[in-house]
């Protein structure tokens, strides 16, 4: 590198920029190009007419919008909603675009289009002003004794650090402590499996091979207390497959009934309902993030971001043939949380 560019680097001003002494000179602003509307009064006049026309169009648009408000009331017929939306919208659009395009056309054709240059000044204040500012700060410091009186300063810091805390703590009643609520659902021994959302109980014989039932615990119907909160944990998917296709651990052999299995519908990733069941592949797919679970293999994850299998609901059949839960799920359902495996 040349001596000169090293010089530049040391100057701390332009940094690593290379400043060439023989850079091309700036020829100054390009000469102004004259518009037709500047040269010919005829063109100027027609431009003025166009602008006025656009403003008039805007008036018509707004008037039309006012008219439509009354002319297109809305009632039970959805077509009226469509008409109201469309015509009101079109009227307002005209009202707005007429003004906008008119104003800009005006500016472009009739207002002067000479480019003007204005000087900029360095943003940093001149040295004397800076010195004066520093003087003021020093004076304020001296008069208050801010740096001198350590005790005051430090206690002030302490006070300032503590004072926002009550402001935070009063948000403590935003919600209860999570407690154990995430570990339990309203499923318990003997709860009948019922159809979502009408709550009719399901017989094992109703569940033919290839069927899928969206299931809630019996009694959980719209209108019951904490309906959505309980449903958000208790929703279950019930499927029957050929019994010999099921791959079951010893422990879980008793959890199914003749190929009927019930799994939590709440994704172990972030909690969307894993509701897409493919009859032949036996895969369950979550439509939110595409986690895929193999229903015949304990709902293990075969694809996607989820990490854990869906929890299984142990079921049995009573004397009347209805499907019932053996117990609650034996693990928390839904998305993972920090202490989900901690026994409490």
């Amino acid at each position: 590198m040349s001596e000169q560019s090293k010089e530049v680097e040391r100057s701390q001003n332009a940094g690593l920029a290379v400043i060439k002494p023989d850079a091309v000179r700036d020829p100054g602003i390009e000469p102004h190009r004259v518009r037709m509307t500047d040269k010919s009064p005829k063109h100027a006049k027609s431009a003025a007419r166009q602008v006025a026309l656009l403003f008039t169009l805007s008036m018509f648009g707004s008037a039309f919008a006012l008219w439509t408000y009354f002319a297109f009331p809305i009632n039970e017929d959805l077509n009226t909603v469509r008409q109201n939306t469309l015509f009101l919208g079109v009227g307002i659009t005209l009202g707005l675009l007429g003004i906008g395009i008119g104003a800009i056309h005006w500016a472009k054709t009739l207002m002067p289009d000479h480019e003007v240059a204005e000087d900029r000044h360095l943003l940093a204040s001149p040295e004397d002003k800076r010195a004066a500012a520093i003087e003021i700060i020093n004076l304020a410091n001296q008069e208050s004794g801010f740096t001198r009186r350590k005790l005051i300063r430090r206690t002030l810091y302490g006070a300032l650090a503590l004072f926002p805390l009550p402001g935070l703590i009063i948000f403590g009643d935003l919600g209860p402590n999570p407690g154990n609520s995430l570990r339990h659902t309203i499923w318990k021994k003997g709860t009948r499996l019922a159809r979502d959302p009408y709550g009719t109980p399901i017989k094992a014989s109703d569940v033919t091979i290839g069927s899928v039932y969206h299931v809630v615990p019996e009694g959980l119907v719209p209108g019951t207390e904490h309906y959505l909160e309980e449903k958000a944990k208790a929703a279950v998917l019930l499927v029957r497959v050929e019994p010999d296709k099921l791959i079951e651990t010893e422990e879980r052999k008793s959890w199914s009934y003749q190929g009927i299995v019930a799994y939590s519908k709440i994704c172990t990733h972030v909690g969307c309902p894993v509701a897409l069941y493919e009859q032949h592949t036996h895969h369950l797919l979550c439509p939110c993030h595409q986690s895929t679970f193999d229903l015949v293999d304990g709902c293990k994850v075969v694809f996607g971001p989820a990490a854990r299998p869906l929890p299984q609901l142990p079921i049995y059949v009573d004397e009347e043939g209805y499907l019932r839960a053996q117990s609650d799920f034996n693990e928390p359902v839904g998305p993972s949380f920090w202490d989900r495996s901690v026994k409490s």
């Binding site: 159809r195 399901i202 017989k203 109703d206 569940v207 033919t208 091979i209 290839g210 069927s211 899928v212 039932y213 499927v239 069941y277 493919e278 009859q279 032949h280 592949t281």
Partner: peptide, 13 residues
């Protein structure tokens, strides 16, 4: 009928 991978929704369901 539950064609292809679509599950069956029988009349009980």
């Amino acid at each position: 009928t539950g064609p292809q991978n679509m599950p069956v929704f029988n009349d009980a369901n």
